[in-house]
């Protein structure tokens, strides 16, 4: 295998050796509790994401314009993602080197920025002005669900593929 252009392992080792990483790793209960918080944040993501995606697919709240339900839930989607990041970072720091050698971690980290950029650059713009579900909104919603599905599923799989 050719050597990577940028060597990332030292950064992962630095993360794990950091004060935050050490505090979480050496504690008996911090990792599980933050992990539970990460799951609660996942539920918040589900609340902010799925109702609107379903509506963009032409399901669920079909008597309400897409833009209206999007406006109502977008702040909650944002909060869910911030909470996921805030809980995900300390979890990662505590076992960064294990993550480095974990394929699922890389699948998740490759998909996450795509999902975030797609959600706020494409999905938000389309949903903000949309009324009824069209082929266009359906495509956007299906892409959104697929991207976040990969992020969540790969995230869960980090714990299995160690």
């Amino acid at each position: 295998m050719p050597a990577p252009v940028i060597e990332l392992l030292p950064f992962f080792e630095w993360c794990e050796a950091s004060a935050l990483g050490q505090v979480v790793r050496t504690s008996v209960w911090l990792f599980p509790v933050i992990e539970a918080g990460h799951l609660l944040a996942l539920c918040l993501l589900g609340a902010g994401l799925l109702v609107v995606d379903a509506r963009m697919l032409g399901r669920g709240l079909t008597d309400v314009p897409i833009a209206e339900i999007h406006a109502a839930l977008a702040p909650w989607l944002r909060r869910g993602v911030w909470l996921l990041i805030a809980t995900g970072v300390p979890l990662f720091m505590s076992e960064a080197v294990k993550c480095y050698y974990n394929p699922s971690f890389w699948v998740k980290m490759a998909t996450l920025p795509v999902a975030i950029v797609f959600t706020w650059r494409v999905r938000s713009r389309v949903a903000r002005t949309a009324g009824e579900a069209t082929a266009h909104t359906r495509l956007v919603a299906a892409t959104s669900m697929a991207l976040w599905f990969v992020v969540a599923a790969a995230g869960r799989w980090i714990g299995f593929s160690s």
């Binding site: 539920c43 993501l45 589900g46 902010g48 799925l50 109702v51 339900i69 839930l73 909650w76 869960r156």
Partner: peptide
């Protein structure tokens, strides 16, 4: 993943019952 779906939907319902969002529906 079903958790994100089901509890997510429950949170969405509860936010409406609390009068938080969406207020117009």
């Amino acid at each position: 993943l079903a958790l994100a779906w089901f509890v997510g939907a429950a949170i969405a319902l509860d936010l409406r019952l609390l009068g938080v969002t969406p207020r117009s529906i």
